[in-house]
């Protein structure tokens, strides 16, 4: 993680020491923006109906974007999402409880504007790294009893890639739209537990509670990460911003 952040900082510093060039839109290159990310939750499994209905993933983001080169801008975003899912105690072949995972994340990204456009205007592609801190709680099916909570945030680092376009109206108002793909680092490690959790059904097998149970901290984390990964995998986003200076 450290080396990615170092890389982004080096890029940022280099961009300021580069020869004078036209940067920004009409000389303005700092944007404050808020985005909504959403898409059909195609991998969300509903054990009750034994089908995959079109649920909806939502994520909110807010952050800043600074054009640092003719075609490059740096983005720092805060992200928030929440996702419900069902789980089974393992003893029964149907869901026995409901759980929720909440993610707070920070994303640093580099946006490349292409097609003769000057940042921050026009079509772009972005590459980034996000770190999401996940918190989850596992409850009974009627939600009245909390069986377990994560004892601290579960860290999920994610590679992100996006493509979209940005337009500017009235010299200040920024409209942004695009799509984003998020791939967790851990997916690339092919951790059996996580990999299985991500691509198996949401019909999670988890037995909370007493001794001798199937509960393990790592499986809890794996299921939270798996749910977050599904949430972040593909999203379409629209956003508004203000070009400040």
């Amino acid at each position: 993680m450290k080396k990615y952040i170092t890389g982004i900082i080096v890029l940022f510093v280099l961009s300021f020491s580069a020869p004078a060039q036209n940067v920004g839109y009409m000389g303005r290159h700092f944007i404050v923006h808020a985005d909504y990310h959403g898409f059909f939750s195609l991998l969300k499994y509903n054990p009750r109906t034994e089908s995959r209905p079109f649920g909806w993933n939502s994520r909110l983001a807010a952050g800043v974007e600074a054009a640092v080169g003719r075609r490059i801008s740096l983005v720092a975003d805060y992200n928030y999402f929440s996702r419900n899912f069902v789980y089974s105690s393992g003893a029964y072949p149907y869901p026995t409880g409901k759980a929720v995972v909440r993610g707070n994340g920070v994303e640093l990204a580099v946006k490349f504007y292409y097609g003769d456009n000057i940042a921050p205007l026009g079509p772009w592609q972005r590459l980034g790294v996000a770190v999401h801190m996940l918190n989850g709680s596992f409850r009974s099916y009627d939600k009245n009893t909390v069986y377990a909570r994560t004892d601290g945030p579960v860290i999920l680092p994610v590679f992100t890639y996006g493509i979209g376009f940005q337009r500017i109206f009235k010299d200040r108002l920024v409209f942004n739209a695009g799509m984003q793909i998020g791939i967790p680092f851990t997916l690339l490690n092919f951790s059996e537990e996580f990999f299985g959790a991500t691509f198996s059904d949401d019909y999670a097998v988890y037995t909370p509670g007493s001794s001798g149970s199937q509960y393990t901290s790592s499986s809890q984390h794996a299921y939270l990460k798996a749910q977050a990964a599904k949430h972040l995998f593909y999203n379409v986003n629209v956003g508004l911003g203000v070009l400040l200076f």
Partner: peptide
């Protein structure tokens, strides 16, 4: 001189003009 793949919306046009004038200024 240049030919760019973009429309002539206000923002694109202003961006191009600013860039042209920037090159004159600098």
């Amino acid at each position: 001189e240049d030919t760019q793949r973009k429309n002539s919306s206000e923002d694109y046009l202003k961006s191009v003009l600013y860039d042209v004038l920037y090159s004159i200024k600098h």
